[in-house]
Simulated assay, not measured.
Amino acid sequence: MSINFRFHKLPSLVAALAIIAAGSAQAAGSGDHHHGAGHGNEATPVGPMSFGNPGKAADADRVVEIVMGDNYFEPETLSFTAGETIHFKVVNSGTLVHEFNLGTPSYHEAHQGEMMMMQQHGVLMGDHINHEMMNMPMGDDGHVMRHDHPNSVLLEPGKSGDIVWTFTSGGDIEFACNVPGHYAAGMVGTVDVE
């Protein structure tokens, strides 16, 4: 797809982009971008999550700290009991943008395509997120990549975020970073639910 525009329309285009960017900056908040962590589009469907659902911080049974480095998680394995609500406190200590995302292997595979689209459209820029582009239409269907899911947090270096999740059953559950190339490089861990 090629975009052609004449230079006499450039001032109008710049003005329109400035308005969009201003609105996007307000939507982006402080720069910590959380998926469903209390702002943005919390009704965004995540798809069926047979192993659990979003929880409330006030109901958390315990807090689990997750450190994301450049292509690794600490810890690498997590164990919970069915019915347990976990408050994940996630910190990106790496030099790149990373994601903590709870899902099945097939969910992560599908989400990696969305993350690739975000990279191709200039939203994910290696060491930072272009928050203005976050709310721009992407792809053939023109949907907006707010990336605001309750099972995931996307963080720039040095940033932190929270996810609260209630695990209802076990299964094939992973936590992963779906930024292009990171999952393949081993940035994935397992979740055991008894």
Rank of each mutant, 00 (worst) to 15 (best):
G83R: 11
A110Y: 04
D32T: 10
T77Y: 08
G189F: 06
P54R: 11
N130M: 00
L78V: 09
I66E: 01
V46E: 11
V188F: 10
P137A: 06
M118D: 04
P54T: 06
V90W: 00
P54A: 11
A16R: 09
H34E: 12
G47P: 09
H33C: 06
E156C: 12
E65Y: 04
M116S: 15
E65K: 13
V164S: 02
E109G: 05
V193N: 01
D32Q: 06
V91T: 15
Y183T: 07
K89L: 13
H128G: 02
V164T: 14
N41R: 11
F100G: 02
N130D: 14
P75V: 03
V164G: 04
E65G: 04
Q112W: 04
Y72E: 14
S152Y: 03
Y107K: 10
F100D: 01
Q120A: 14
P54I: 01
M68D: 00
A60W: 05
D162Y: 09
K159E: 11
E114Q: 14
Q112V: 13
V153G: 09
A58S: 15
R62I: 03
M136R: 03
G36L: 01
Y72S: 13
V91S: 15
F167T: 07
D140I: 13
D172E: 15
I19Q: 11
G158D: 04
E194Y: 07
G186Q: 07
A28P: 00
I163K: 01
D148M: 11
V123Q: 06
A15S: 15
G40M: 01
Q120P: 05
A37I: 08
Y107Q: 07
V64K: 04
H131S: 03
E109W: 06
M1F: 15
D172S: 13
G55Y: 06
H33Y: 11
I163C: 02
G139D: 11
T168E: 09
S152D: 02
F167L: 06
I163E: 00
Q119L: 14
